[in-house]
């Protein structure tokens, strides 16, 4: 198998996904098959080929630094799960800070 169950759990943790045992088993099998298929790219010897990250030859775009109205605060917070005093509110990050 191209990827182990532990590697799947590691990648899931990197991607902030909490997988159930059943999901971990299923994804190990499916991701193994997919990785085996996409590993086909390694058949080609392309050491001297420049990587292509973007399909167009674009140059940087410059814009004048002109202030424009931005979203009103209540609109920006309107879809939030929780907010307080004009901020997004989240549970404690688990970090303790010494003062």
């Amino acid at each position: 198998m191209a990827i182990s169950r532990d590697e799947v759990l590691h990648v899931a943790a990197l991607a902030r996904l909490e997988l159930s045992d059943e999901e971990a088993d299923r994804f190990t099998e499916q991701l193994g098959a997919i990785l085996e298929a996409v590993s086909k790219v390694s058949e080609l010897d392309l050491g001297d080929v420049e990587p292509l990250s973007h399909p167009l030859d674009l140059v940087n775009v410059w814009a004048d630094d002109e202030p424009r109205p931005s979203l009103p605060l209540e609109a920006a917070l309107g879809n939030a799960g929780e907010d307080e005093d004009g901020h997004f509110r989240v549970p404690p990050t688990g970090m303790t800070r010494e003062s």
């Binding site: 902030r16 879809n79 939030a80 799960g81 404690p92």
Partner: peptide, 23 residues
């Protein structure tokens, strides 16, 4: 991540909330 939009799952810490929301 459940912070700016979309439904949020409860979690005791920020990481737990994010992981449960995404799962």
């Amino acid at each position: 991540d459940g912070v700016r939009y979309g439904p949020r799952e409860a979690g005791g810490s920020f990481d737990e909330m994010v992981e449960r929301t995404r799962d």
